[in-house]
Design a protein around this nucleic acid. Structure first.
Length: 249
DNA sequence: AATTACGTCAACCGCGTGCAG
DNA sequence: GCTGCACGCGGTTGACGTAAT
């Protein structure tokens, strides 16, 4: 059985794209737009798999791509978003205009991981390395599933309740409480780029509200008394982070 | 100059998901 | 509800460039 191949592999090119192939793909998409990747190669006269065309376009040929090095600001944003979202590269990329998920993923693995390690921070948990070996769990969404699977493992010798407690202890790390909820009505007016003559800071422009990182007068810092203690990372102490606000695509 | 080790990143692969029939 | 298709995503690979020996 199994899944049918996404394309006829026998007659497709693989490996690096040539200039001519790039030109054909660009010309076709300019003329017909994106979409229907499966039929695109044939229509564009390319001996490539549709997936390959899509990847090439999204990661390399798209006109709105921002080539070049990542700025320090982008670095920090990626770190913060990764601590929040885990390896959800497409979501992270959605917050970085002109950057692709593949690019960010590569950049993370080659630069930021090392950067964090040099700072003494575990890139998986975003906690100090000396704490990383303790009861800490990652923030990625996959973690819950793994833990669930572990719990369901019939061969496990540890009592299920005991395991539950272990998981709970390990999950104390960061209570994200990201919720999927029915369509909500905004309680506040959508914030314009400028509010009362005040230019919104980078964090507010990202749509992240109530963040301690906010440097403008409007968005963050939710009044003086709101954050009762410590670091209000991305506003997590001061309110619920709406997962939808992270979706950009 | 030759060889090896390492870093980078474009591209591939397999799986999950949404959707139409 | 089931099935197959198409797309999108994340993990991984491998070619290539550069630094070190």
């Amino acid at each position: 059985m199994g899944r049918s191949p996404c394309c006829e592999k026998a007659h497709t090119n693989k490996g690096a794209w040539t200039k001519e192939e790039d030109d054909r793909l660009i010309a076709y998409i300019r003329a017909h737009g994106e979409g229907c990747w499966r039929s695109l190669p044939k229509a564009a006269g390319l001996l490539r798999c549709g997936k390959s065309c899509r990847l090439r376009w999204i990661n390399y040929l798209r006109p709105d791509l921002k080539r070049g090095n990542f700025s320090e600001e982008e670095d920090e944003l990626i770190i913060k978003l990764h601590s929040l979202l885990g390896n959800k590269w497409s979501l992270i990329a959605g917050r970085l205009p002109g950057r692709t998920d593949n690019e960010i993923k590569n950049y993370w693995n080659t630069h930021i991981r090392r950067k964090l390690l040099n700072r003494g921070i575990d890139p998986a948990t975003h906690r100090p390395l000396n704490e990383a070996s303790q009861d800490v769990t990652t923030i990625s969404f996959g973690g819950a599933k793994e833990e669930k699977e572990k719990l369901c493992n019939p061969n496990g010798f540890i009592d299920k309740e005991e395991k539950k407690i272990q998981v709970q202890q390990r999950s104390l790390d960061l209570n994200l409480d990201l919720r999927i909820s029915p369509p909500y009505h905004q309680t506040t007016q959508p914030e314009p780029m400028k509010s009362g003559g005040t230019t919104l800071c980078f964090i507010c422009n990202l749509g992240i509200k109530n963040s301690k990182d906010c440097t403008c007068s409007t968005g963050g810092s939710s009044s003086s008394g709101s954050s009762s203690s410590g670091y209000d990372f991305l506003g997590l102490n001061s309110g619920l982070l709406d997962y939808r606000s992270l979706e950009m695509k």
